[in-house]
Design a protein around this nucleic acid. Sequence first.
RNA 1: GCCGGGGUGGCGAAACGGGUAAACGCGCCCGGCUUAAAACCGGGUGUCCCUCGAGGACAUGGGGGUUCGACUCCCUCCCCCGGCACCA
Length: 792
Amino acid sequence: MERYDARAIEEKWQAEWAREGAFAVANPEPGTEDDRRHFYMLEMLPYPSGSLHMGHVLNYTLGDVVTHFHRRNGSTVLRPMGFDSFGLPAENAAIKEGGNPLEITERSIAAIENQMRRMGWAIDWAREVSAHEPTYYRWTQWLFLRLLEHGLAYRKEAPVNWCPNDQTVLSNEHVVDGRCWRCGAVVEARNMEQWFFKITAYSDELLDDLETIDWPERTKKIQRQHIGRSEGAELLFRIDELDRDVAVFTTRPDTVFGATFFVVAPESPLVDELVDGTDRADEVRAYARIAAARPTEERASREKTGVFTGRHAINPANGERLPIWVADYVLMQYGTGAIMAVPAHDERDREFAQTYELPIVPVIDDGGSLINSGRFDGLAWREAIVAITQWLSEQGKGKSAINYHLRDWSFSRQRYWGCPIPVVYCDDHGIVPVPDDELPVLLPEVENYRPKGEPPLAQATDWINVPCPRCGKPGRREADTMDTFVDSSWYFLRYTDPHDESAPFDRRVADYWMPIDQYIGGIDHAKGHLLYSRFFVKALNDLGLLGFREPFQRLFHQGWVKLGGKKMSKSQGGVTPDELIDRFGADPIRIYILFQGPADQDIDWTPDGIDATVRFVRRLWRIVHEAAERPASPPGVDTALARKAHEVIARVTDDIERRFVFNTPISAVMELINELSKAPDDPAARFAAETAVSLLQPYVPHVAEELWAVLGHSRLWEEPWPAADESLLQRDTVQLVLQVNGKVRDRVEVPVGLSEAELVERAKASPKVQAHLNGKEVRAIVVPDKLVNLVV
RNA sequence: GCCGGGGUGGCGAAACGGGUAAACGCGCCCGGCUUAAAACCGGGUGUCCCUCGAGGACAUGGGGGUUCGACUCCCUCCCCCGGCACCA
């Protein structure tokens, strides 16, 4: 028996798989019926940041087990890999350390790809794509132009989140607690012209279709909450001085009789209209300017402030004149930017009313019935919502309405290392799309990546000054680049047809593989990537480019791998995959990371346990070698060891397939190995060894392949998954648990299938049970083949 | 504040439809092999009590409940992690 040499074995089989193209899969042939059972397995693609970390190792090893499992169960499994290779870190590194983002990125990709190969993951490398390659971003641009044509991409001036550190706009999804998700700087509010995707056009569908996909409930909740649909009414308040009606959104139209004042957001254009030409104009405008400029977070945490405009609005329900205030607690982005204030029944309105001594009129009593509400007095508030909305709508003073928290996705970034937005600004023609046949608009080289009040691309004068594609007069290219989340909103489609030079993908091929059968990635993408991708697929479906409306049919979130309580992100000393592979081998690392606990649970990284998995692999190695000396087990061999092997097959299969748990299968195979080591002469010894190796193959593909050869076989990666023999899963005898008053007093071995009376008899025969009965009368609870509980 | 998820030995965990709590592994203890150590192999290991047994009691964050029987179901409280948060 040779010594277990992880490095030699791993290099040998990795070379073999690469030579064979073992994990490459073919697309369906055009014009023929493709009846392959197929499965699209995908993990979120990595950002190339120099090295993988243990979180990646968990993520991709999980996907690898699923990939092998489905392959060996007869599916053609598409399992590609690529790189989310545009983005700020490479650009910031270039600014800080010199070099250029392209070179930095490609060096990282090469390093990570090497790590991935060394981990032995079963990836179809022929489909590799990276977002920064012109052959990829050409099609990102092409898709953008399609969305632009259909009004789903547009440009407008709007209040946006500005990160002063990264010198760029951020989407709402990437402002966390008022800070930039990437660098942590406090985000400022700015009014800027920006590009947006009209994701809000899909609010309802993004919400409703969550019912059709198999995702963790918590992820659906995060998306539902983010979309934030609320039902209510839009009510019209007359402002006589302006001779017009102003709409407000409320979820509680039943409280309209309790509205005692009216509030407008400081950013609202209404502010100017209201005070223009009045003696309060200066004071109100000054307040509005200061209040609107405050960071959103600060605005939420400090005491509410406001100023009276001198104007009034008419309550549509009772005709009362309500003073109009401008106050910082009303937000422009939600509803209409103006509210009716009902201080008796809204905490924020009450706080404000108390500060500024405004009247408070209760309109709902303790029993939930309306008061002070004219003809609606006595009505339950829930019914009043309907009744009052209808009453006002009959008079043309309101209607039922729905509002959402979700806002359009701002995707232009004032940075260099991203996909150029393929439009030209022309004085005569405005925004002019670059014609499809001129794509890609290549990212030019620039001298300096640091933004200086304008995006770095604005400095590339040769590049930016181009004739208008429509009229030929001088024009200017868009200098903003796209958010990298645009790149990752369709990469899974490109994988299906990665070398297509005439289209981003072939609809026939995309429809064949998609939707993704199993997607695995972090829950931190719940309202970013996972929402944007759903939007993209829905939009592309509406454009006729795809035949499905959801990208990820089934989703799983792996837990965090933490170091000292903190999420592992960058490479940390001593725990890069490279160093660990050198010390222990890829197989032990793979099994270690999955053996720690349930894969969706966070794990604290300690290298301690890896020794134990190395030990286990060596033990497996030795015991399988010993078993290989034994004669082949006869087919259908029926011994205790054979039965154990079949039981383990059933457990492992069920765990991976139905329960989607990956730690307990390892335990189960360990049990089998333990029994085999205690019964080396059992006629089923060799069968037990073969079973153990076969079941572990998805976890430790290299050593499993080597041991499979030792057992006289070949090509385990193509071997059908073992099937448990049902007849050998049946037991002849079972351990019967004997309880007295619910406490276990004895256990006896009995034949399967005894009647209840027989089981009770066996129970009463036990001396230990008798000792606790003292001859008293009993009632028996019987669970056949399992338990008898005698109740005194 | 609202909405999720969780709390089981010294540690990571298992127990999947209410039916043997702690499988599997780590650590630790004892023994074997060895000149020795490592490696490897075998055995033990929830806590407490005693008369040391084929003994007993107590044990799944705290308290209560349902049940013959609860880690599992219900109520309540505490703690940890995550999401949202002036959303009208």
